[in-house]
Design a binder for these strands. Structure first.
Lengths: 226, 226
DNA sequence: GTCTATAGTCGGATAGAC
DNA sequence: GTCTATCCGACTATAGAC
């Protein structure tokens, strides 16, 4: 596995092809031959550069996490700051939630490319492989903590309480479902792809429901705590 | 493909093994050898009874849909009836929503077996194969229509409006996320499996959030309609 | 209807020339 | 670092005996 190799182009071409093909067909259903052909490189480059097909998959996972973090971490950091600052008011929290929804919708369903990368993350969620922790530590944990921090500000509950984490997950689910159920969404809309106004409509539905949820969140139903 | 074959036992043993193994590993990663061994039948029984591995997969899909319909259709029918009856009040709608949440949580994460069958449905959602329509027509459509009917009763919007269908999907997402993100949930809880009290806590979180959403649903924000 | 044996294909990884 | 050629194992499906 030559790290300081001269030509990084072959590596990157394989990673780019892997992002697309592993997302489209999954790990098992994507053969090294098809991968190499799509990347326009030689078959033997996969074992050479990545130690094998699985090594390429891990490299793809790390590449995805790196680019997701670039988009998400600033928004997560803002949410954590708003959640922690004693001066934050309800308006600040709502505004941070809007930002979270918008960036997450964009990363999950905003573009064809983002749909491809989010597809790989979903596959890992549903059927975790040894690569799962790359996505969990790199993306999910931060998303849950960001939501929990904001919810904590509104409810006074500890950000690491079970209830807040379940609520954070549930809210994330309202966004994720539009990626998970994309096939169903498209069938309902009788379309092949989503238009920008559909994406906007989805973001608005989610935002309005999040606002409704947090509006009813204090006081918290005590029987929900576990 | 002998339909009126004498021994249905071999067929059923293969379908049962398929439900488990296709769910655990996916279609591509499940070999006919492992399938036959797990079912305790001969390898050649797969092409003989189902025409091939793909035929077995479709038979598994239809078997899953049949058993899901048995659990879900009565609750869906009740929701549609409540949504359509002019005499239904807000309390009736909320009660029907509670029933929907409980039965859906049970079918998605209630038992180890239900987690297995829901896994196959999720795989089809994320990476649809030609079997997708079996699940869409058999299960998803009914779930969306049931929620849309109840939301329609509360908002006065048409049950087939885009907004109501998106809201129905979003609510379904709050439930589905706990199945999709099971690996993340378990990691957050630092557990290997869910205990009954966790399942109850999940149902309560979803119900309280659905109630909050519908509480703020009339009047409906007009800018959301598309 | 169920079995054994095997055909035919495709998978990932490697050897070795350049 | 990249190529061609090839190995070898695993796969699904089939032929044919019982």
């Amino acid at each position: 596995m030559p790290r300081a190799a001269a030509n990084t182009s072959t590596r990157q071409k394989l990673i780019d092809a892997g992002k697309r093909l592993f997302g489209l067909h999954g790990f098992e259903a994507t053969s090294t031959r098809v991968l190499a052909a799509a990347a326009g490189v030689n078959l033997a480059a996969i074992p050479y550069h990545f130690g094998g097909k699985e090594g390429l998959y891990h490299a793809v996972a790390q590449d995805i996490v790196a680019s997701e973090k670039a988009s998400l971490d600033p928004v997560f950091a803002h949410a954590l700051a708003v959640g922690a600052a004693p001066s934050s008011g309800r308006t600040d929290v709502i505004e941070a939630m809007r930002s979270l929804v918008r960036v997450l919708v964009a990363e999950l369903i905003g573009t064809a490319e983002s749909q491809n990368t989010s597809q790989i993350m979903l596959q890992e969620q549903i059927a975790p492989t040894p690569a799962f922790h790359i996505f969990f530590d790199g993306v999910y944990r931060g998303a849950i903590e960001a939501w929990a921090a904001l919810l904590s500000r509104l409810t006074g509950l500890a950000p690491d309480s079970l209830e807040l984490r379940l609520r954070a997950l549930s809210i994330l689910g309202q966004i994720t479902i539009f990626r998970v159920g994309m096939a169903a969404v498209l069938r309902l809309l009788e379309r092949e792809t989503l238009a920008p106004e559909h994406i906007e409509a989805i973001a608005e539905v989610v935002i309005s429901q999040v606002e409704a949820i947090v509006a009813g969140l204090s006081p918290i139903p005590p029987e929900v705590a576990a």
